[in-house]
Design a protein around this nucleic acid. Structure first.
Ligand code: ZN
Ligand code: ZN
Ligand code: ZN
Ligand code: ZN
Lengths: 125, 125
DNA sequence: GGAGAAAATGAAAATGATTGTCAAAAAAGA
DNA sequence: TCTTTTTTGACAATCATTTTCATTTTCTCC
């Protein structure tokens, strides 16, 4: 249990939205940490592999991470402006995805589902 | 109506799966075209902007494109191995996404939904 | 058809996120 | 403490994508 990995985890937990590796690195450095960029990437990789954090890609392909409350399978409602996210569930979607996959003879069916919009706070500005 | 853009469009139409810019460029050069990589990128950008082709991101962040039959909003069932894709629809998902967005006070709600798996042909190998 | 303006093209350089390398520093074990 | 293993971080290398910019190809008007 490296302390670095813990540092990154906490930096993520401190945010309600999705954050990029570069973002987190800048924040950590700004608050005095001597952590290296490579280490931030490695920590996020590990956290992501172990399922402790969720990852998604922004429109321009950048990977962003989030330490979600739920350990179970879920999806996100993400604000386009501030990147704040709400964890959401959709049983109907789960079933639909599995069925449509099976219907076309696909195996090992998985899915990615993300909902985007502008959150209440950002809508006012 | 540049002939280059048409060339790229046809290269895409010739494939049933999602293709990357680099892929298409390699193919076009292989078949004798003198097209430049920059032009392929520009053509795909334009086709994507005008909604003529669909775009999605692979796990490693690479953008891949597809010239779909349907002009209407739809989603895809994509093979993880060969990238072949089937156009699918899910009215229930559309409604669910809009509702969950509204319920949390989000405006301008959109969504991305993709289903992945191994297609029948690839499953045999 | 031809001259000049405007748009399209592509080679090469620049960008920017992510990954690889490798030697130093820290942690774990004996 | 001494040795071995793991973690770390500066730096270089990758690689898709974007910018630049000069050249070529269209368009427009005569
Ligand atoms: Zn999540
Ligand atoms: Zn799901
Ligand atoms: Zn499509
Ligand atoms: Zn939809």
């Amino acid at each position: 249990m490296s302390t670095r990995r813990e540092t990154v985890r906490q930096a993520l937990t401190g945010s309600t939205g999705f954050r990029s590796a570069q973002d987190l690195y800048a924040d950590l450095r700004a608050e005095g940490s001597k952590i290296g960029l490579t280490t931030v990437y490695r920590a996020l990789q590990a956290l992501s592999d172990s399922g402790e954090v969720d990852v998604l890609r922004t429109d321009d392909g950048e990977a962003v991470y989030r330490a979600c409350d739920s350990e179970q399978h879920h999806h996100h409602l993400v604000c386009r402006k501030c990147s704040t996210a709400v964890e959401i569930e959709g049983p109907a979607v789960e079933k639909w995805a599995a069925e449509v996959g099976a219907k076309h003879g696909f195996t090992g069916v998985t899915h990615t589902v993300e909902v985007f919009g502008t959150c209440g706070d950002c809508s006012k500005a």
